[in-house]
Design a protein around this nucleic acid. Structure first.
Lengths: 118, 118
DNA sequence: CCAATTGTTCAATAACTTTTGAACTAAGGA
DNA sequence: TCCTTAGTTCAAAAGTTATTGAACAATTGG
């Protein structure tokens, strides 16, 4: 009952970039980064799409090696694979997240995802 | 006879990431980075695909704001929009290029694109 | 002017991606 | 055990992207 993940050295740059090149998935990653340390289940992201569609996007992120999903009861706890990504592509995740935080065009989770400065 | 480019503030993070999420385009960017300062015309990249196909990929890069194409006679001189990208997404281009340089799975331009250490 | 060079555009096709709803599995609580 | 909750899987439809070849445009050099 564990889900398939690539190991660190199987994570591919073009695949990661391609997977992040989608507003829904970028919004997921941005939200995960804003809650780093806190494992989140899939339902947290329902603002971004239907249950089925999220299952699809979360699988893409997981299969690319961007996130890890741990099965806990009926939940999947989702975390960013920050250490693996930092080791493989130094600085990439940080710069993507920093840019994503500033992007008002990305969909938001919870309706209060972005702090717009006055 | 000038080609359309987005201006700096129109460059979109998901579009840039999506455009970079393709091995051919990542190889183009890596090669441009390795020749920074030297403007290159499209024919330099023919190792990566047919003339038509390169026209397509180079247009994608240009329309995303990753490259600039200047018309010089019958040539288009292609450069990376490094300053614009650095201003908009600090650190992103550097980390992508650094990771791309280390990626042996990317196609190479000229057959000597990558230095594989002994 | 003519021919060569450089690159684009167009239409067709193939291949992939996204989205949906219905059906399903698996765990947990009453 | 039965019901609910959480999430997956499947197949279909819709949409998008990549690749190709033939035809085109623009410039340069002979």
């Amino acid at each position: 009952m564990t889900l398939p993940h690539p190991n660190s050295d199987q994570i591919s740059l073009p695949i990661v970039l391609g997977v992040l090149g989608d507003p829904t998935r970028l919004a997921i990653v941005r939200y995960l980064a804003s809650k780093e340390g806190v494992p989140l289940n899939c339902s947290q992201f329902l603002d971004l799409g239907s249950k089925t569609n999220l299952s699809y996007h979360l699988a893409k992120l997981r299969e690319a090696g961007v996130t890890r999903a741990e099965v806990v009861g009926t939940n999947r706890m989702i975390t960013l694979r920050r250490a693996d990504l930092d080791a493989r592509f130094p600085g990439l995740l940080d710069s993507v997240i920093a840019a994503a935080v500033d992007d008002p065009a990305l969909p938001a989770v919870g309706g209060h995802d972005i702090e717009v400065p006055a």
